[in-house]
Write a protein that binds this DNA or RNA. Structure first.
Length: 194
DNA sequence: TGAGGGATGGCCT
DNA sequence: GGCCATCCCTCAC
């Protein structure tokens, strides 16, 4: 098992974001292991990035984890109803993160399906299967992540990312999603997907 | 297949 | 009091 090291996360956010594609995210929930493959991410580059929660040096209870050590999970509530999972990057006091926007189930899809729809995967309709975990709120629901896991160390045994040694060749990029308020930063091509 | 809109509540000023 | 790194349903085509 090639669990990603602290060094991996303590680097430039754009580099980490791209290299997270194809990696496997593991969550041990009550001794039931769920594994997914990361397929879509976005980079949020700290105090100079108008789309970032820490833009302008904002440091609040919500963003506190981003100001800390790289390799921890930053989870927040969005639109009052959903959770988003981020990975903290760069150094302490340089509050950057990578948002995990999409994943594909690798192991224990049954548990994920019950988390998501309270149904077996085989019972889902084609729309539900197609949109199973292709969004930040959806993947948190599928993995059963909420604020309980905020700040969790990704070098722990409960929540971590490992390198499956898959060769990712064709990385696509685009503007980040739903950050129209971010002026010129809304045009940066900091969304990466495979 | 895509656009349009409602739900919903914590966070921050 | 306004904003928001979303999701899902509806409806039209």
């Amino acid at each position: 098992m090639n669990k990603l090291s602290r060094d991996f996360y303590e680097r430039d956010t754009l580099v980490v974001a791209k290299e997270l594609l194809g990696k496997y995210l593991v969550y041990n929930d009550n001794d039931e292991e769920v594994v997914v493959k990361i397929t879509e991410v976005e980079a949020y580059k700290g105090i100079d990035d108008k789309a970032c929660h820490t833009y302008g040096g904002r440091r609040t209870p919500r963003t506190e984890v981003m100001w800390g050590e790289a390799g921890h999970a930053y989870i927040y509530i969005i639109y009052g109803m959903y959770y988003c999972l981020n990975v903290v990057t760069e150094n302490i006091d340089n509050p950057c993160a990578v948002l995990i926007r999409g994943v594909k189930p690798v192991k224990n899809i049954t548990k994920m399906s019950y988390n998501r729809y309270n149904k077996a995967y085989e019972e889902l309709n084609s729309y539900q299967k197609k949109n199973f975990s292709n969004g930040p709120g959806k993947l948190c629901k599928a993995l059963s992540l909420d604020l309980t896991q905020n700040g969790m160390d990704l070098l722990s045994d409960n929540l971590y990312i490992y390198d499956n040694k898959e060769n990712i060749v064709d990385i696509k990029k685009s503007k980040r999603i739903n950050i129209d308020y971010a002026e010129e930063a809304a045009d940066y091509l900091w969304r990466f997907y495979i």
